[in-house]
Design a protein around this nucleic acid. Structure first.
Length: 568
RNA sequence: CGGGGCAUGGCGCAGCCUGGUAGCGCAUCUGCUUUGGGAGCAGAGGGUCGCAAGUUCGAAUCUUGCUGCCCCGACCA
């Protein structure tokens, strides 16, 4: 591609709308343009990257035996009513009405459509196992789209759905996708981690997420240093700890006027957050429920809403309910004397001589001890987020925390949809069996943003070679006044193109500095400079995007260095 | 959805408080000079100041409504 014909416009300044670096660089490098909130045009340069990501995903899905199809983006409401999700899915669903006043939605996912296909097409166990996939535009009406393509409303996703006769078959199909995903992210050249994930409301099923590691990631991942354990913090377990030490302090009520937060209480009483307990009042199935965790810990909503009697989704009780339940304004609740169900987190129940709210305005207790000032809880629960240094569940050592961007999710669905929608086949004994389903997603467009988050510097993007829009950029110096340079650049362009490389020839009549800056901004892995100076010596100047210095390269050695399309 | 902020040429911004016919940088076009890290000079084009009402002799500026965009939002108990 000749730069002068490519219509690329780069931006020197950072558009005000872009918060994170990948979004800024995608706009500056001309990969995307925003149409409206969470909806983007993929410009030619960006589309090249997208296509490369798609190609790798497609190759590996095909290799794993999955079959590509394309389902409709627009789906009838009836299908979603069958699965029960027309009401469940809520505002994420973009609803559309046609001229006959019939309801449709723009598909945010395709379980309903694929299950409908399956129940029509699949009649016999002999057709199984089967895995259908598509690469397609989805729409989810996110509450707050942000971070460019990382949390867009319209986005491209690869979604696959497996069908098996039984749980063993499903496990095998799931494993095949796990392995395919691992190959995909390795081939994309990204640092990633597979983590255990929340299986949501479907329950009992296996679920894992693939995260690209980046400090700006929206998810926190807990992992063990030996890589034996990795889980989304949402689901990472914390373990019970031993009984509390013996009391040493006397129980007393202290005045803490206005000290509603843990921070306030610590300030007033001169204690640290891990000596304080916070008592959160949440809505329950039969009135409010109290959750007690250590002051320095965070409540984990995913875990808490699974407790008996706790409302799901987790909802904090309103102030009126808190007053009724505790007899005090919010900010002074404590577990002593509460007449509602109380759950103690493992770590909170291991404290002695601790501080808690007194269920009375402007007062806390201190020197509180289980078995003396309140009964020891019969059982303790896991309702907090893991923190770095916690013991690894089921392993040895302690966990570390990293940030990740979720780019893939694999899931054993079981029979949720096949049951609701009647997708069955006959087994070898001639009996009807409900299909066991798995679903497997990859965020194609999100991968592009994630790759940039992980690979950039102050000058711009540094594409991993497998998804770079161009493999190499040729920068002629003073081509307008040197026929030799122009001819050499053209010849090089022809030769590298013929060798199967994606080549960008910067034939603009621009100063070298402009060309260098743009080449770095758009992140082309290899750069070759053609100049009179170099030609005289029979050399080109080569520099990798990650290098800080250029080096001379004999003209005849160029192809050997860049090799085939599989350059690194 | 709740809270906050912003809306002026393609991009980044000033002007608004204290009404008086719109400006700067970048980008774009023309010419000359320049050419190894985002050139210089001279000139040019491009804006119903988000939309709609209102106040006023006069509104980018003041008032009201609407729309769009951006940021924050269990962790307080």
């Amino acid at each position: 591609m000749r730069y002068s014909r490519f219509g690329l416009t780069t931006l020197k300044e950072v558009p005000a709308e872009a918060e994170i670096v990948s979004h800024q660089l995608m706009l500056r490098a001309g990969l995307i343009r925003r149409l409206t909130s969470g909806i983007f045009t993929w410009m030619p340069l960006g589309l090249r990257v997208l296509r490369k990501v798609e190609a790798i995903v497609r190759e590996e899905m095909d290799r794993a035996g999955a079959l590509e199809l394309v389902m409709p983006a627009v789906q009838p409401a009836e299908l979603w009513e069958e699965s029960g999700r027309w009401d469940e899915y809520g505002h994420l669903l973009l609803r559309i009405r046609d001229r006959h006043e019939r309801d449709f939605c723009f598909g945010p996912t395709h379980e309903e459509v694929i299950t409908d296909i399956a129940r029509r097409e699949l009649k016999s166990y002999r057709q199984l196992p089967l895995n259908w996939y598509q690469i397609q535009t989805k729409f989810r009406d996110e509450i707050r789209p942000r971070f460019g393509v990382m949390r867009a409303r319209e986005f491209v996703m690869k979604d696959a759905y497996s069908f098996d006769l039984d749980a063993d078959g499903l496990a095998a199909s799931y494993q095949a996708m796990h392995d395919a995903y691992t190959r995909i992210f390795e081939r994309l050249g990204l640092h990633f981690r597979v983590v255990d994930a929340d299986s949501g409301e479907i329950g009992g099923s296996r679920s894992q997420e693939f995260h690209v590691l980046a400090d700006s990631g929206e998810d926190a991942i807990a992992y063990s240093d030996d890589d034996g354990y990795a889980s989304n913090v949402e689901t990472a377990a914390t373990l019970p700890v031993g009984a509390p030490p013996a009391p040493t302090a006397a129980f007393e009520k202290v005045s803490t006027p206005g000290a509603r937060s843990i921070e306030d209480v610590c300030g007033v009483l001169g204690v640290t957050a891990e000596q304080v307990v916070k008592t959160l009042i949440v809505d329950g199935d039969d009135g409010p429920v109290a959750l007690v965790i250590r002051g320095d810990h965070e409540l984990n909503a995913v875990k808490a809403q699974k407790l008996d009697g706790v409302a799901s989704p987790l909802t904090m009780a309103d102030p009126k309910t808190v007053r009724a339940a505790t007899g005090a304004e919010p900010g002074f609740a404590g577990p002593i004397g509460l007449d509602i169900p109380v759950y103690f987190d493992h770590a909170a129940a291991a404290l002695s001589d601790f501080v808690c709210g007194a269920n009375e305005a402007d007062a806390h207790f201190r020197g509180v001890n289980f078995g003396r000032d309140l009964p020891s809880p019969a059982a303790t629960v896991d309702i907090r987020n893991v923190v770095a240094g916690d013991p690894v569940p089921g392993g040895t050592g302690t966990v570390s925390i990293a940030r990740g961007i979720e780019v893939g999710h694999i899931f054993q669905l079981g029979t949720k949809y096949s049951e609701a929608m009647g997708a069955k086949v006959l087994d070898p004994d001639g009996r009807e069996r409900v299909l066991e389903m798995g679903c497997y997603g990859i965020g194609i467009t999100r991968i592009v943003g994630a790759a940039i988050e992980q690979n950039h510097d102050e000058n711009g993007i540094i594409w991993p070679a497998p998804i770079a829009p161009f493999d190499v950029v040729i920068v002629p110096i003073n081509a307008h006044r040197s026929d030799a340079v122009r001819e050499a650049a053209d010849a090089l362009y022809a030769e590298l193109s013929a060798a199967g490389l994606d080549v960008l020839l910067d034939d603009r009549d621009a100063r070298p500095g402009v060309k260098f800056a743009d080449a770095e901004l758009i992140g082309i892995p290899h750069r070759l400079v053609v100049s009179d100076r170099g030609l005289a010596a029979g050399e080109l100047e080569y520099r990798h995007r990650r290098d800080s210095e250029s080096r001379a390269l004999k003209r005849e050695d160029v192809l050997a260095l860049l090799g085939s399309p599989a350059v690194t």
